[in-house]
Amino acid sequence: MKGLLLKDWYLTTKYLRALILISLLFAAMSVFSPENGFFRIYPAVMFAMIPVSLYSYDDREKWTVYVQAFPVSRAQYVTEKYLFGAICIAALVTLLTVLYLVTGADGIDGAVTLSLLLGLASASLMLPILFRFGAEKGRIAYLIFIGVICGSGAALSFSASSAGDITTVPSPNLGLCAGAIVLYALSWRLSVALYQKREL
């Protein structure tokens, strides 16, 4: 597991640097312009997509096949992706918390809840599709998903009436956060089951 996490860390720093930097910039901007829904949604969804992108690289570079030559079970492979995804979302949430605390901006609870919720839910929906159908077919679902999320985020941010919804939605709602974590856990179990059946 340690080796897989390290491998994904290398890939993230080499392949996904630009995506992370842009996401972090948007995350910072969301603190200063909380009315802009796009800035609030984009970083969470992009951070959730890190394990999705990493799986796509693994699939393209045939690491998904090669890794089976090593003492790594398919369940461990899937688990590592979920763990890496959870670390990414946790890092974003931590960063947002620090930004809100440092700047003294309002709405820290809502921002944290929204990021956690969106991040975990996005990954929960995307990863099982990927583990079942592979990166190539999963890419279509990925593009549709990103299009819908970013499109609705942008639409909401330009709509004055809706912008209010975005900033006020999930105030510190522990139930929602717990639900997202449960969804993530269920998604992990489903992905393990699906990936074990797949012929690579």
Binding site: G3, L6, Y10, L11, F70, V72
Partner: peptide
């Protein structure tokens, strides 16, 4: 994107 040195570090965590 990996180098041989990085592959070695990864494998240390695998085996």
């Amino acid at each position: 994107c990996l180098t041989a040195a990085e592959v070695g570090k990864i494998m240390r965590g695998v085996f």
